[in-house]
């Protein structure tokens, strides 16, 4: 069983929902990232998404775009992100996922990347601009190395395709809550629950909801029907606003704990 599958099974047994915070590797610096990841894990993160910076991140809103630019300026690249995961892996129990765009992965080569990701201890990979039709070689290479290739679905996904994605994904299905880019929103988009329930009909795979989720209240609302919640921009904003790395780690820990609280309470029917 993959580390991700084991974690979801464990949470389900406890009646909990997963919190998956996202932060960009190398933001604000490569040195600061391990401390931020450890702070998130210690504060209750169930799995952590580590963003691989890219020059042209078309699915990101302004907050994560800026984080990506800061990280690139700080010298982050895919190789260094993999080194960072390798360094963190022995210190952390939570599954670690990479979220990044196709070109850096393919610049390394699908096979080479899969091998190095497995070696570093990466548990899952999310690639927003690589649908399964285009990334067959990539997802197969990951699967062969025991790394989960997490696919995304969303509100415009047709029912037929949703069923297909739910069967093809590994680890969990990432359900994009809205039509749009990443970033905090005042309220949740309508129809998320229906989308999640439709996906559930197709496959017994955990479903996590991301994009536009920025408060503990919103996380708790989604926790009623989904297996997990991804929070990115709202967390990255706190890192951006922190005066120094120490303050950033404290802020991350506080926010992660607040987001996890409504997801930790047991007594839920799936």
């Amino acid at each position: 069983m993959s580390r991700l599958a084991a974690r979801f099974a464990q949470l389900r047994a406890r009646g909990e929902r997963a919190l998956l915070p996202f932060l960009t590797a190398g933001d604000p610096s490569l040195e600061a990232t391990p401390e931020l990841v450890l702070a998130a894990a210690a504060a209750g993160a169930d799995a952590i998404e580590i963003g691989v910076p890219f020059s042209d991140p078309i699915a990101e809103g302004p907050v994560i775009q800026r984080a990506s630019e800061r990280a690139l300026r700080a010298g982050a690249n895919l190789r260094r992100v993999l080194q960072l995961v390798a360094q963190l892996r022995p210190q952390i129990e939570a599954p670690l996922l990479l979220m990044g765009y196709a070109n850096p992965f393919y610049a390394m080569g699908a096979e080479a990347f899969a091998a190095e990701a497995a070696e570093a201890g990466v548990d899952g990979v999310i690639c927003p601009d690589l649908p399964p039709e285009e990334g067959a070689d990539f997802y197969a290479a990951l699967a062969e190395r025991g790394v989960d290739g997490v696919l995304m679905a969303g509100p415009t996904t047709t029912p037929q395709r949703l069923a297909q994605l739910a069967r093809q994904t590994r680890g969990f299905l990432y359900y994009v809550s809205l039509t749009g880019v990443t970033g905090a929103r005042n309220r949740l988009a309508p129809g998320i629950e229906a989308g999640v329930r439709a996906a559930r009909q197709s496959a017994a795979i955990p479903i996590c909801v991301g994009f536009g989720v920025s408060t503990p209240e919103q996380a708790g609302e989604i926790g009623r029907y989904a297996d997990g919640v991804v929070v990115g921009s709202a967390l990255v904003s706190r890192i951006e606003e922190a005066a120094n790395p120490g303050a950033a780690a404290e802020s991350v820990a506080r926010f992660v704990a607040a987001l996890k609280a409504p997801l930790a309470a047991g007594d839920r029917a799936v």
Binding site: L72, N103, P104
Partner: peptide, 19 residues
């Protein structure tokens, strides 16, 4: 060869795939 703006084509990028 690279993946950029929704297509696989030829791109100007560095060894890390940054455009």
């Amino acid at each position: 060869p690279g993946i950029f703006h929704g297509q696989r084509s030829v791109v100007l990028c560095d060894d890390d795939g940054q455009i």
